[in-house]
Design a protein around this nucleic acid. Sequence first.
DNA 1: CCCAAGACCTGGCGGC
DNA 2: TGCCGCCAGGTCTTGG
Length: 271
Amino acid sequence: MPELPEVVVTLRGVSPHVIGKQVVSVDVRESRLRWPVPADLSSLLSGQTLLDGRQRGKYLLFRFPTGHLMIHLGMSGNLRIVRDETPVGKHDHVDIIFGDGTVLRYTDPRRFGTIQWLVGAPEQHPLLSSLGPEPFEEAFTGEYLYQASRGRKVPIKQFLMDNKVVVGVGNIYANETLFQCGICPTLAAGNVSRSRFDALAIEVRRVLASAIEQGGTTLRDFVGGDGKPGYFKQQLYVYGRGGETCLRCGSVLMEIRQGQRSTVFCPVCQQ
DNA sequence: CCCAAGACCTGGCGGC
DNA sequence: TGCCGCCAGGTCTTGG
């Protein structure tokens, strides 16, 4: 599933094809996503012009004159551009059809994603109101992480994946950034030093930016808005490599479970 | 408030 | 080839 880089790649891929265009209809073939897709989505959107698209954490926000279409891709979702005659696959749940025959198609086998219609300021929506800073925002600094972590006993890896702390860092990139910084993922967040948080903030930005440049990470089904997979997988140092050797020191990488997610780290490089 | 675990889904893979 | 258990990019909800 998409973490922040995949969401950004998706947004950049689809935007040029749909912004400024008018919706003629919406086809909802399966409304049972994480929450039901609004039954009247077609009548809400039809006739409206898509003004712009942006991203908040892993949420995509498409602005229309009367509100925002908010889309989350869950674990297995993707959004891409097809034509109105493109054959429909089993998990192609929603089509947003524009006047020139362009279709923004939402696909999601596991249906953990969501599509909602927001009226008013998106930041005030319950799903967005308590999100932490964007990793590329100025507010995201080592000092911020240090302050936010005081007194916290959660392992640093889970702290980094907490959307109230910072948005966009999921399981792949949490594993990768901690490796790059040489920080053991099981350390209590509250015990991590200020200088290590400085390095971590820098590394989170660097890893995410690099993944975006590579078109994201494709494990099996992620494709960007242009239908192409991402190539960051070739640059993963630890994720998916438990039991293999560390690319830095040659030790055997350990794999453990933290919060029901797999963590892979080098017991020598990360302490 | 903090933290851990359960819940929601489908599909791919390894093992037998 | 078939079935079974386990695993997967997220995050809300519940319970202690």
